[in-house]
């Protein structure tokens, strides 16, 4: 079993990229299974199942963050994909808070970014980009050559080791290079580990405290004029 996890902000074209990837994998005789992890709404699983007849599933993370949910379900999902007779599992996840990333050691990490989201985006998305193996840049025909080049250079600044693949995701132009990365991905190891360190923090807001102001909270907190500090036991 080989694993590729695809992350990226909403509407960047993750599904469009994966659609072409699925078509390519099918053509090569390695049908993939597809898992979508989203917070509260997704229909990509139904669309891709209808389009390609491959096994698909979705999980709503609900109260959990999608990357947290990914950690919970990924082991089961690999088992499911194997039982469904697939050799590749593609996971599409909506990484949201930019503090961690869903990639695991031994799997391929793909981040999808759109060139139209501004030249500073590569500096903002954190480990979702810096821990990826491949950064797919979509909507390249929409921005000026200058912005596209600055975007690429800033990806390389933020993540010097990531491979950049520019794609016209609507038409699948440039997909072959990405498909090549899946082919060279090793078999998934038995023990899976998150590639990055999760953020440090006990979130008092997640457990229900609604008061504004750090004085009402504990754990890792911060004030406007301070870096983060620890408050409490």
């Amino acid at each position: 079993m080989r694993l590729a996890i695809c992350a990226g902000p909403s509407t960047t074209g993750k599904t469009a990229v994966l659609r072409h990837l699925i078509a390519d994998l099918l053509q090569k005789g390695t049908p993939p299974a597809f898992l979508k992890i989203d917070v509260q709404y997704a229909e990509e699983d139904e669309i891709l199942a209808a389009e390609f007849g491959i096994p698909t599933r979705k999980v709503y993370s609900g109260e959990l963050c999608p990357d947290h949910c990914n950690v919970m379900v990924l082991g089961d999902a690999l088992h499911w994909a194997r039982k469904a007779g697939c050799e590749v599992l593609l996971v599409e996840t909506a990484g949201l808070c930019l503090r961690c990333s869903p990639y695991v050691d031994g799997g391929l990490g793909i981040v999808v970014l759109e060139a139209t989201s501004g030249m500073n985006l590569p500096r903002k998305v954190g480990p979702m980009l810096t821990l990826a193996d491949v950064a797919v840049v979509t909507k390249i025909d929409r921005v000026s050559q200058a912005e596209r080049e600055v975007f690429r250079a800033r990806i390389q600044d933020a993540a010097p080791r990531v491979r950049i693949r520019e794609m016209d995701a609507l038409h699948g132009i440039g997909i072959a290079a990405l498909a090549g990365h899946i082919e060279t991905t090793a078999e998934t190891p038995d023990k899976l580990l998150l590639r990055g360190n999760p953020p440090v923090g006990t979130c008092t807001i997640c457990v229900g405290r609604k008061e504004i102001g750090w004085q009402s909270h504990f754990g890792v907190v911060r004030a406007l004029e301070n870096a983060t500090f620890y408050r409490g036991e």
Binding site: D105, G106, L108, D133, R163, H181, T184, T185, A186, R195
Partner: peptide
Amino acid sequence: MQGPVAVARSPL
């Protein structure tokens, strides 16, 4: 970055 690496590395 830690762990096994799936992709041929930097152009550098």
